[in-house]
């Protein structure tokens, strides 16, 4: 359906455009500005061209951080999406318990990120944390400040705890929109539980799952606060994800030029991966998966 053309409508969009310009475009341009210049302090800048980009591309530091980042995002997606679907499938569909579940599930989503980090940081401590202390007591060698594996497990479990609800809630919304007739027809056709999932629930959830995966991917790829609070990127560089590394570089070492180049590439990587995701999934959707 096409719409009536009315150029006055552009005036209504103007405030948003101004807002976006101040909040996104202008800061981004500042970053671009930094990325092609060098400074020795005193607000003096020299043209550096693509030097910083070349340097960043050649450094192991960024590639390692990218590798860790991809591993982190991959693992949490592999856990959160199936787990979220599983939770959604097992949630009550109506009545008091449905509302109860919804409220409980949204709780982790309401907690500020740094608080989530703090909670887990304390929770996991061997001396005073409930989790760390208990594990230590039953003889599991667990110390996230020293052991790489323990550190990874901690930040992954934390992320799963924090964000699975989001996937579950989206999946639940998708499930709720399936008319009863489909389930009745499946009963009549004697479809197994697995087939009901595979041929009715999954296809009907596809749309919202796509959004869930995209959201979780982008969010996890940019994660900063929580691992920073828990591990501070350690032990060593073991949990130094992209954004943590970026902050270290920009604020810790004050290497503005490389950090700016880094963040632009970071931004482009997110854009690229999101685009690939989106394209692949819409194509799958068109083909009926």
């Amino acid at each position: 359906m096409d719409k009536t053309v009315n150029h006055k409508a552009w005036f209504l969009v103007l405030p948003v455009l101004i807002l976006v310009a101040f909040s996104a475009v202008i800061p981004l341009m500042t970053v671009v500005n930094y990325s092609v210049q060098d400074t020795f302090g005193q607000n003096e800048f020299f043209w550096a061209g693509l030097e910083w980009f070349e340097e960043m591309l050649a450094s192991d530091r960024m590639w390692d951080a990218l590798g860790r980042q991809l591993m982190f995002s991959g693992i949490i997606l592999l856990i959160e999406v199936p787990l979220g679907i599983f939770v959604a499938l097992n949630m009550p569909k109506s009545g008091f318990w449905a509302s109860f579940c919804l409220v409980v599930m949204s709780l982790p989503l309401l907690i500020p990120w740094n608080v989530v980090g703090t909670i887990w940081q304390i929770f996991g401590r061997v001396d005073i944390g409930l989790l760390g202390y208990t594990l230590d007591l039953i003889g599991v060698d667990y110390n996230y400040t020293q052991d790489t594996f323990a550190a990874w497990v901690t930040i992954i479990v934390m992320d799963v705890w924090h964000w699975t609800s989001l996937v579950a809630l989206l999946a639940y919304a998708g499930l709720k929109s399936i008319p009863d007739a489909y389930y009745q027809a499946a009963k009549i056709d004697q479809a197994s539980r697995w087939k009901v999932f595979r041929f009715i629930e999954l296809p009907k959830m596809m749309g919202v799952l796509m959004i869930a995966v995209l959201l979780r991917f982008m969010d996890s790829f940019m994660i900063y606060t929580e691992p920073f609070v828990v591990t501070g990127g350690g032990p060593g560089n073991a949990t130094t994800l992209l954004s943590i590394d970026l902050v270290k570089m920009a604020l810790g070492q004050f290497d503005l030029g490389p950090a700016a180049a880094f963040s632009i590439m970071y931004f482009l990587v997110i854009l690229l991966i999101s685009w690939v995701f989106y394209t692949v999934m819409t194509n799958l959707d068109k083909k009926g998966m």
Partner: peptide, 15 residues
């Protein structure tokens, strides 16, 4: 062993 046709068509879209 009954069969039912519903008000809104129920087919398995992906098949």
């Amino acid at each position: 062993s009954i069969a039912q046709v519903f008000q809104f068509p129920v087919v398995y879209d992906t098949m």
